[in-house]
Write a protein that binds this DNA or RNA. Structure first.
Lengths: 236, 236
DNA sequence: CCTTTTCTAGACCATGTGGTCTAAATCTTT
DNA sequence: AAAGATTTAGACCACATGGTCTAGAAAAGG
């Protein structure tokens, strides 16, 4: 926050909100309370995207709760344009799933409409400075959601009923090669065993995983965290 | 931070660090500067795990950079025990990948050894209160890493060179069924077309994806976001 | 030491799969 | 209307794959 020391060009902003009241409210607030330059506003995502292409602002304040084309898809599209626009997501309430998805697709900040005006300005300031802004309460919620989503992923992997647990070491090696789309012959060469041995292993794998062909075996392996296990062992 | 108002049991802590100097330094600091109760310390992850099982502390301070069994796998194991222990990761430098992985497997806080002692106490306080603690600089790095990892995921999907883009509608339908491990006959029945037609489609798919068999086709599809496309369209 | 599991490997057969070619009907697109 | 792409479908063949059974060597566990 070395404001005033370095040369600071006024950040140019576009505000998007389908509610005109909110839109003009935020616009006024920014124009009065800060020295940012609101170059345009839009009440729909599609209009917003054209405006962004035209004006190339540094910052976009994007309301997430909009009918028609919603804010999240709009963010995704803008990010895809790769214009270096930094997007701040705006919303009325703090749904952790919304925050997660917004951050996932590239939002650089997330603020609630209920927040104090000073904090809004501060958030824009931070994001304009290349940082990422999340209010403390939201970042906590974000992390909880983040951890939860990964916990669910790994829970399945460690599940008792994961048929992959019944595979022997050698069978795992064979399955590993199968999940790379390698044929009997290829597996035999890689493991220095005969082709018929590979077939035996593969058949045992099928029985243990209760499937009928390689594709299903590979799919079972992939869906039940087969690749993750070695990652867990080698490097988490 | 309503300290003193509510009834507050002294949080019990176990500290893990292979460097004995650091270990006793942190222990002393906590004992002098706070009212937490350091019930045990350990210089190795395996010892730490036994101690945790025995003492059931509320908080564990875990050094990530340890030889032998490293801190990350230790965290994963402790989380798997599901004892309600809240783990704070400790490290000397702020490697975004390390932070990401620690948070991913369930760390509730992340602090640098170089941080001021008051901040360490504050961090423990927060985590003990059920919150998640990340210093502002680290949370920024975390988010950048987080977004980067998802960006790479989606970049592939939208890539020009994604051979999936060359598939026709019908071919996509067929491939979709292949990724469910369905055979020629099954696909034919589901799509109400002849089995030989399915074979024609499948062969065209192979050529377009430059693969030789179904397994490879399925793997290509999965690795290049085939399933995501419909998700992207429906709900991001 | 003995038992059990795992890994190895062969035979045999039925069928699924992949490669190639041809070709008609049906869209699209210009 | 003509040209091109897509979808449909057949024939034919080589070979990879899957199912089942037997069986010895090696390793693991009690």
């Amino acid at each position: 926050m070395r404001r005033g020391i370095e040369f600071k060009k006024k950040a140019r902003i576009i505000i998007v909100d389908d509610n005109y009241e909110h839109l003009s409210g935020i616009k006024e607030l920014i124009e009065i309370e800060s020295d940012f330059d609101v170059v345009a506003t839009a009440t729909s995502a599609s209009v917003a995207i054209s405006l962004i292409k035209k004006y190339r602002p540094e910052i976009v304040l994007m309301d997430i709760n909009m009918p028609e084309k919603d804010g999240l898809t709009a963010i995704a599209e803008i990010e895809k344009l790769d214009l270096g626009v930094r997007i701040i997501a705006l919303t009325g309430y703090d749904d952790p799933d919304l925050i997660f998805r917004a951050m996932k697709i590239g939002a650089k900040g997330y603020i609630l409409k209920t927040m104090a005006s000073a904090q809004l300005i501060y958030a824009i300031d931070e994001v304009a400075a290349g940082k990422i802004y999340l209010p403390a309460t939201l970042s906590s919620r974000f992390f909880e959601y983040f951890q939860q989503s990964f916990k669910e992923e790994t829970e399945n992997v460690e599940d008792e009923e994961n048929l992959l647990n019944y595979l022997t070491q050698r069978e795992e090696e064979v399955l590993d090669l199968l999940t790379q789309g390698i044929t009997y012959k290829g597996v035999a060469q890689k493991l220095f065993i005969s082709e018929t041995t590979v077939k035996t292993h593969v058949n045992n794998i099928f029985q243990k995983l209760q499937v009928n062909d390689r594709t299903q075996a590979v799919l079972y392996a992939l869906n039940n965290g087969f690749l993750n296990r070695r990652k867990v062992k080698i490097a988490i």
